[in-house]
Amino acid sequence: MSAMPQQAQFERGTPLTYTPRSRARDEGALVREHLPLVRRLAWHVHGSVSTAVEVEDLVQVGLVALVEAAGSFEDRGQVTFKQYLSTRLRGAMIDELRRHAAMTRGAIKRRREYQRAIKSLTSASGRAPTEVEIAATLEISVAKLRSDYATAEAVQFDSIDEVYADDQPWFASDEPNAFEQLAEGQVRDRLIAAIASLPERDQMVIQLYHVEELNLEEIGAVLGVGAARVCQIKSAAQAKLKKAMLRAT
């Protein structure tokens, strides 16, 4: 490209301006706009499994996935960024759950205590703590620190028959889940009719959980009840739907 137009502009005294890349601005806007989605999905995933991974850990994983998704997304008119991001977030969070799936609860607890002790001592002294200091903080011997805490990555091998559960994400496949399969063709019409026959509160719980993807605590805040009560309502509503669908077949 010829430099003559720029040279002429310079000679006329017109200042040259620099405009930041619009793509960078767009990525920043996407990240800020979808921050609430990260936390909402983290709570939803956390509420559907055991508490082996803290929700804040899932949020951190989701934030990384959000930044990566904002940088890699190409709008081809097929899916929205929110749809694309939801898939990326779920995948990243489930991968994190799978990574922790084989750890025993005791090992997880010891690892957290070990990390908290290191963080506290480092913050207080401004340096990495010694084994003696960490052991004193945890009120254990150095030998126990080395055997049970510093290497708290214990793996527990269980029979697949004992640990398998359909609702656990690490056993999930890429195929449509049962709820999505029921939403097709004539079955969809029967399902809609079955949902419509439920009490109003049951309908709301099904809508908020399966469509809006709120977790049990968020639904409880909407209904003014606890998460445990929401779980009871959801289970009862799903049982009613199952019976209604079986009668319709």
Score class of each variant (00 low, 15 high):
Val38Pro: 00
Arg229Trp: 01
Arg90Tyr: 15
Val163Met: 04
Thr151Gln: 04
Tyr18Cys: 12
Leu191Phe: 02
Ala136Gly: 01
Pro15Cys: 06
Met204Tyr: 05
Glu131Cys: 03
Ala8Ser: 10
Thr122Asp: 06
Pro5Cys: 09
Leu35Cys: 05
Arg40Ser: 06
Gln207Cys: 13
Glu184Arg: 15
Met245Gln: 12
Gly28Gln: 02
Ala194Gln: 00
Leu216Glu: 09
Glu68Lys: 10
Ala244Pro: 09
Val155Thr: 12
Leu182Asn: 13
Leu89Glu: 02
Pro176Ile: 09
Leu214Asn: 05
Glu54Ala: 08
Arg98Gly: 15
Pro199Glu: 14
Phe81Tyr: 04
Leu208Gly: 07
Ala183Lys: 13
Ala70Pro: 03
Ser141Arg: 03
Gln78Leu: 10
Asp174Cys: 13
Tyr164Ala: 01
Pro176Glu: 15
Gln232Asn: 09
Ser2Ala: 12
Ile192Pro: 04
Gly106Val: 07
Ala128Glu: 03
Arg229Asp: 09
Gln9Ala: 14
Asp161Ile: 10
Asp202Tyr: 05
Glu27Arg: 11
Ala143Tyr: 01
Tyr164His: 15
Pro15Asn: 05
Gln232Thr: 10
Leu208Val: 06
Glu184Tyr: 05
Glu218Arg: 01
Leu16Pro: 07
Thr19Lys: 05
Asp166Gly: 15
Glu213Ile: 02
Ser48Ala: 13
Arg105Asn: 09
Tyr114Pro: 00
Thr80His: 11
Tyr209Ala: 09
Glu33Asp: 11
Ile160Glu: 14
Met1Gly: 13
Leu66Tyr: 10
Ala165Ser: 10
Ile140Asn: 03
Val225Met: 06
Val38Glu: 00
Arg40Thr: 05
Lys109Gln: 13
Asp161Asn: 12
Val64Ala: 07
Thr137Trp: 01
Asp166Thr: 10
Thr130Ser: 06
Gly77Glu: 04
Glu162Cys: 02
Pro5Tyr: 09
Ala128Val: 06
Asp26Gly: 11
Lys234Asn: 11
Asp57Gly: 06
